[in-house]
């Protein structure tokens, strides 16, 4: 049986659509195999990587995976841990031991003095169990509390486009607006600076047009015009 690719790179496909037949191709992200054919699981855009066929979803929620940097809001403070809303169907657990380096005598301390309800943090996902229990950590050089500024939420699957190749897109927005920007893999973007409005506009434009080509130039123009 001869293997054959049925789609082009960057093509929009729908759930159940055949992408390739035969065993010379491998089902990647957003795809599944039934018998000889590889099909798409989602409404998305095809990305070919040699023999690997991926489909990048055009929408959907954030599903945490270890190593992701995410922006979350403290939802609840318990005696030894915090519950963090990470813009996902699953809440994150931040243990005291993963958040504070010093010794804390739990019986005598209210740990809300470190992180209180409603505060914004950039944190790392360190573990995700099979039934999606998510543990977070602040023991990372980039993890920090985010003070002031504003947040913009975009579709999580479009975050890579906002960051761009080696951070090109986000660096350009930072440079041209002079804003401080932190992008969470969960689609939450924090920004702070004089020209927040312009940066927000650019970010939302990237989200809207994420599946088109020649986007970097268009965003550059949008930023120039102010």
């Amino acid at each position: 049986m001869e293997s054959k690719l049925l789609v082009k790179d960057k093509q929009i496909v729908i759930p159940g659509e055949d992408l390739a037949v035969g065993y010379d191709f491998l089902p990647g992200r957003g795809t599944f195999r039934t018998g000889e054919s590889i099909r798409s699981k989602v409404l998305g855009q095809v990305r070919l990587k040699e023999k690997l066929v991926n489909v990048i979803s055009l929408s959907g929620v954030y599903i945490p995976k270890p190593g992701d940097g995410v922006i979350g809001v403290v939802d609840d403070v318990q005696t030894t841990f915090w519950v963090i809303n990470i813009n996902s169907p699953y809440k994150g657990i931040l243990l005291l031991s993963e958040a504070v380096k010093e010794f804390v005598e739990v019986s005598k301390t209210d740990i809300a003095r470190y992180f209180d309800i409603g505060e914004l943090i950039y944190t790392k996902v360190i573990n995700v169990t099979k039934s999606k229990i998510v543990t977070l950590s602040m023991m990372d050089p980039r993890a920090k509390k985010l003070r002031g500024g504003r947040i913009v939420t975009i579709i999580p699957s479009r975050v890579p486009r906002l960051i761009g190749k080696k951070g090109s897109m986000i660096e350009m927005i930072k440079e041209k607006t002079g804003c401080q920007i932190v992008v969470g893999q969960n689609g939450v973007v924090w920004l702070k600076g004089e020209r927040e409005d312009l940066a927000t506009k650019a970010i939302l434009e990237v989200e809207k047009e994420s599946y088109t080509s020649g986007l970097t130039e268009r965003i550059a123009r949008l930023l120039e015009e102010g």
Binding site: G30, F32, V42, L43, G44, S59, G60
Partner: peptide
């Protein structure tokens, strides 16, 4: 469901 980005075997 497809618009919401939910993975499906088919429509």
């Amino acid at each position: 469901l497809a618009d919401a980005g939910i993975p499906m075997k088919d429509l």
